[in-house]
Design a protein around this nucleic acid. Structure first.
Lengths: 340, 340
DNA sequence: GCAGCGTCTGGAATCGATTACATCGCAGGG
DNA sequence: CCCTGCGATGTAATCGATTCCAGACGCTGC
């Protein structure tokens, strides 16, 4: 006995009206004790579950939030999704996910079909007209776009990049390479700016190669790096994936990390501390980020009792491991240092 | 002009009834040419989008499928989610995700609230009463449970494990270790069985250590392995994560892979081919698996025109890379071989 | 000229809940 | 004793689409 039980079935079994059943379930204190017990018993007996579509239609909300990410296959998002879903679930919300590259028409519909109450945007490259056309509460997470009319949550990417440069400079590297993300990407641009600022501040030489955050981009950058003269002794990759690709290809080319070159990553993905060598990297607290975004969205939806101020805990930190060390001390380098 | 446009607004602007607007949108061929054009123009002018909740209620379906996974933070699922979402999107379905450990009550609701038309189950450890209580089309993917009344899609885990053993045996390893998943898990159990079978078939020595698929489990297993006498020269880990943890800890203990010990993983995650050494592993075609599951579910929902037979392409393969090699030829081993 | 048929369109029921408003009974104050 | 007020409950409107059914219209063929 289940599946197609409606509220009228419960009502007739309990000998009350549907209004009373509805109230007994959603506002128990407004229903008399005896009646409530009778209703609850009928609910149990029939196995009744409210029909979401009917409730959503009547209440004009979907009890659901939508996550839009530029590539669901990217493992970087896993922990963020997990955190968002936990928070959402706690607030009684379901979680819908979609790749943001499903095509303009479908994308527009997603924000319009009334099946999500709010959106977590992990993509800063969607057409702003589409995004601003949605009349839903939104939060930008990690990536962002100035044109979107929505609050942002994320780390200070420029500061994070500067930390990486600082670290390499502190180890006495005088020439560093940045393997960045693609030109159009805000994260890539901001981290590159931070890199440039850091390099300028420390008076060291900085070079940039554009990549796209992937393993292959890192490997490709390693081959380019090997041909540079003089070769930078420190490398800052815009993502851990990229850094691992770089290190892996270095090994194939006969270079050791950190003996021949120091490498700093970005993100602190799960594997970073188990890579060989363990990767020095900028930690993005992904779980905290996801949680903060979900909380902020729940707040915007007016579902939270307590409004908490912006979480100050979302700061990037550098995690120093074994992929960075002082630069190799070959003759030319010693000579250079002596000249200073 | 948008957001709160209803079908009646479009109808009155176009000077037709709501029935006609509805038909013009969902079955254009049943509406006269002139009328259809007028309706479409009104749709454009008003920016009308159908209300999903209303349509779902009337049609008694949600145009949405639910993915249930035991841990959304597990990066293994990323590619699967991505593939499922692609197929679902192509079939006009939204994708909802949930961690399957959200608590029994919430879990029961998920399958009952009418907001999903079908479920992709990636968890074989949910209470069968809950799962079988759902009256929705379901597909079990990767993990499974005999008690669930739902078709399964996944690789042959026992055969896959045997392939790993074969590979090690072919390299002349005579004593191999299996770092398995946790006891209750079907994947762990099946792979362990395959391991045992393989070992027996080749007449070599096999030992098993229970882990839980994680990096740390692999690292822990490495420490245990180092204390074994004699030490197995080949290791088959039940997941790539575990294998990477094992190799990483081996390095910390002063053992080299594959010089001192050969390691085979399972899954072929993205990093496997870039790890140092590149990991020999059993490839699970995750994208194909996700795609097949989504297609099968779409078929069950009766949304597909063509029913395609079970995809035979979903077979595990072994990808041989650099983490496996013949066993080290120390004296004791040479002696043993000589005795054969 | 008319029956018969096919095409297009509109009226109204329907999906299943929530909720504004009305009603009823009873307790307490004037 | 009547009236007010309040708590508990029922009646019916409502959310916004889809779809059954029937009617209008134009043609064809006899």
């Amino acid at each position: 006995m289940s599946g197609r039980v409606r509220i009228v079935d419960v009502a007739s079994l309990a000998g009350v009206s549907t209004a009373t059943v509805s109230r007994a379930l959603s506002a128990p204190e407004t229903v008399g004790r005896a009646t409530r017990d009778r209703v609850m018993e009928a609910v149990r007996a029939t196995g009744y579950r409210v029909n979401g579509a009917a409730r959503d239609l009547r209440q004009q909300r979907a009890r659901s939030l939508l996550i839009l990410a530029p590539n669901l296959a990217n493992t970087f998002f896993s922990r963020i999704f997990s955190a968002i879903q936990e928070e959402a679930s706690a607030a009684g919300l379901a979680v819908q996910i979609s790749d943001s590259r499903i095509g303009r028409e479908k994308l527009v519909s997603l924000g319009y079909d009334g099946r999500a109450d709010g959106i977590v945007l992990l993509d800063g490259a969607i057409d702003p007209d589409v995004v601003n056309g949605w009349r839903l509460p939104m939060i930008q997470l990690c990536e962002w776009n100035e044109a979107y009319r929505a609050p942002r949550i994320g780390i200070d990417n420029a500061a994070a990049a500067r930390m990486a440069v600082e670290h390499l400079a502190d180890l006495c590297h005088r020439s560093v390479l940045h393997v960045s993300g693609p030109d159009g990407n805000v994260l890539a641009v901001t981290r590159r700016e931070g890199f440039s600022d850091g390099v300028a501040a420390r008076g060291i030489a900085g070079t940039t190669l554009a990549g796209d955050f992937t393993l292959e981009a890192g490997a490709c950058a390693a081959r380019r790096w090997a041909e540079l003269r003089p070769r930078p002794t420190g490398v800052f990759c815009a993502s851990d994936e990229c850094a691992l690709g770089f290190i892996s290809e270095c090994a194939a080319l006969g270079f050791g990390v950190p003996d021949d070159v120091s490498v700093v990553g970005f993100d602190d993905i799960d594997f970073a501390h188990r890579f060989l060598p363990a990767l020095t990297t900028i930690r993005q607290p992904r779980e905290a980020l996801g949680r903060a975004a979900a909380k902020a969205l729940v707040n915007l939806l007016g579902l939270a009792q307590v409004a908490d101020p912006g979480d100050p805990a979302i700061a990037p930190t550098i995690v120093v491991r074994s992929s960075t060390a002082p630069p190799p001390t070959d003759d030319s380098r010693v000579a250079t240092i002596t000249l200073d």
